[in-house]
Simulated scan of single mutants.
Amino acid sequence: MNNQPLVQVKNLSKYFQINKKEILKAVEDVSFDIYEGETVGLVGESGCGKSTTGRCLVKLYEPTKGEVLYQGKNVFDDNFSKNKLQYCKNIQMIFQNPYSSLNPRMTVKDIVGEGIRIHENVTENELDERIEDLLKSVGLNKEHMSRFSHEFSGGQRQRIGIARALSVNPKFIVCDEPISALDVSIQAQVLNMLKRLQKERNLTYLFIAHDLSVVKYLSDKVIVMYLGMIVEQAESVELYRNPLHPYTQALLSAIPEADPNIAKTKERIRLKGEIPSPINPKECCRFVERCMYVKKICHEEMPDLKTIDSKHKVACHLY
């Protein structure tokens, strides 16, 4: 692993103007590093800003504030726009919904081969061979090339989406909840395939999910978001062994336990109250209305993301 991060996110914020007075702060002041070859899990409840963060990384959204650096260069800098095509080749995305992310008017050959046609000068025979190899690597075969997306199951469609992301030989892939829309039996197959492809192709992942058991299996580091902000960040083993933020503790307590004897003794932390609106939020701890350890300062100040040790950070006034 290189000392220089492959991707650096610095003070990233993304706001959406609702009307003249209301601003939806989807992501606010988010910072983290991703090193080559590792998988970083990004977790939190629906609406916490995970997907918005991922879309900023692949330049589907332009951030309101902050920077995204790829190999040390700001991808939103005007000078970097000249290398936009190369950046698009190096960074790809696997989308959450395999039904809406594939063009129903295109065959599998056109979907998977589109990126190859744009980035490389290949003959039709070379293109067919490349696509066949890509489909084989994700568990599909040559006969699928001439079919349309509506002829496939959800799991097969997601495999097509993964093949499309791999088609241009990227270095970094944003996986935006790639298994949440799939059956449980298919989820394990796709996860194992992602791990295998990472090893074979030396890929780097940002894995966005709300299922912490999946994130534990796949990720080297875990970032926990709540209402647009990072509340905890640590290596996977450390976070699951010693969760510090009350929100992380509640999330981990909700992971189902397969052993019924252990499940009976496991204490579930139930959060009370409603999730506050991300529209014009108060300048205080975002978790203050649901926290069981709330103090006076929590209503008055926003906690900083403090470094507890070299590999564990938490944004909480308890520390």
Rank of each mutant, 00 (worst) to 15 (best):
R159Q: 07
I173C: 08
S137L: 00
K136I: 12
E143S: 15
D183L: 06
I160R: 02
S167I: 08
V138E: 12
A165P: 11
N141W: 04
L182D: 02
L166A: 08
A165Y: 04
I179S: 03
I179M: 04
Q156F: 12
C175H: 01
S149R: 00
I162E: 03
S153F: 12
L140V: 05
D183Y: 08
C175S: 02
S146I: 13
K171C: 05
L134K: 06
M145R: 15
I160K: 06
L182T: 06
P178R: 00
G155T: 03
S137K: 00
S137Y: 00
L135K: 12
R159K: 09
S146V: 14
K142V: 11
S180I: 06
N169G: 00
N169M: 10
S153R: 13
S153G: 09
G154M: 04
L135S: 14
P178E: 03
K142D: 14
L166M: 13
H144I: 01
I162M: 01
D176G: 04
V168L: 06
E143Q: 15
S153H: 13
D133L: 15
D133I: 12
L140N: 14
K136S: 15
F148C: 09
K171S: 13
I179A: 05
P170M: 07
S167V: 03
I173K: 09
E151F: 09
P170W: 11
Q156E: 15
V184K: 05
H144Q: 11
G154F: 11
M145S: 13
L135T: 14
A165F: 07
V174I: 15
I179E: 02
C175E: 06
Q158E: 12
I179Q: 01
I173P: 05
I160L: 02
F148S: 05
Q156P: 11
D183K: 08
R147F: 10
R157H: 02
I173S: 05
E132P: 05
D133P: 01
F152G: 05
L135F: 15
H144T: 07
I160M: 09
A181W: 04
H144Y: 14
F152N: 12
R159Y: 02
V168R: 07
A165L: 09
H150W: 10
R164M: 02
G155H: 08
H150T: 13
R147G: 00
R157W: 01
K136C: 14
Q158I: 07
C175W: 06
L140Q: 12
D133H: 13
L166H: 02
K171A: 11
K171P: 04
S180C: 01
E132V: 03
M145E: 14
A163K: 08
F172V: 10
N141Y: 02
K142Y: 14
S167P: 10
I179L: 03
I162D: 01
E132N: 13
S153P: 13
F148Y: 15
H144F: 13
L182I: 05
P170G: 09
S167H: 11
V168N: 07
E177P: 09
R164L: 10
P170R: 10
L134E: 12
K136V: 10
S180G: 07
F152H: 03
P170H: 11
